[in-house]
Amino acid sequence: MPNTHPGMSVMPTVWRPQEIGEAYRMKQSLGETAVYAAGGTLLRTQWEAGTAVLPAHLIDLSAVPMLAGYALEPSELVIGACCPLAALRKDPLVQTAFPLLAEAVRNIAAPSIRNLATLGGNVVSRIGDSLPALLADEAELIWLGKNGMQAEPLEDWLAASGSEQAGRVLVQIRVQHGTESVNGAGTMNDIRSAPLLKVDSDRSASVRIYHKVGRREAFTPSVGSLAISAGMEHAAGKLKEVRIAAGGGQTIPKRLERTERLLERHADPLGEDCAAEVHRSAMDEFEPVGDLFASRGYRKMTVANLLVAELWRLRERFA
């Protein structure tokens, strides 16, 4: 009794390479009929929704040692592309040293999914909620391609059109250590609950803030996500090294560079006039994709409002 017929969709053949070179060679030989899979959580939803076809071959990357886990090295955090989101979320060292990433990961999907879903998968989706955090931290991607290992700034990769070099595979995500800082994220509902920044001395501080706004309180697609990283000289009331990245939904996240410069150059970046300019600038610069659930205008306004609100909180802190 045959269980299959020609023309009937069948479950893919699953390949399980044991090292990264093997994975890459498999993809080269199987070509378009094969798809890399890590946690598979996003692929599965795409297959179910019919937005992607079930491939003939799946190259399961979960057994490749080089892609597993993460390491906190003296100058940087090196994260294997197959590191599950849950692992990053739970580590107090990551939380302390990389608060943007920890907070971003904390808000992605639900516990059972975070155990399977990987940071690499979130990155290569091009719309993952970790991306604004990684952009603000100026993360670097390490790929294995035809010329061996290559490094590429995340920002450049996101800005490129998306035509991927045939079969290259994401190996690592690297984030440089900045000044140690304290998580500045929070619900925005209680002014007391969110430690805003780490005061490094009585002269300077570093600011790290991440926000995700969804359609409900948890396990939700984002309608807006925002990451802010900046240094602050509070005696002078100036901001330096400002990095602002925004995304959400189907929007490919981007740095808001004009707004960054505005804040860096402003004589009184926490003042009322600057807040209005920043709001206008963010509204102008951020180009989100709207959908039936949240319009483009709403998404713009949400990100711009959160940004200005954070400036207000900084001012409250230093007034």
């Binding site: 009322e272 807040a275 209005a276 709001h279 206008r280 949240a294 319009s295 205008g297 709403y298 306004m301 949400t302 711009a304 409002n305 200005v308 609100a309 207000w312």
Partner: peptide
């Protein structure tokens, strides 16, 4: 989006 207030309202509130 019906309940969101633009920056002017925030500035005023501040």
């Amino acid at each position: 989006s019906e309940l969101q207030k633009p920056t002017d309202a925030l500035r005023k509130a501040v």
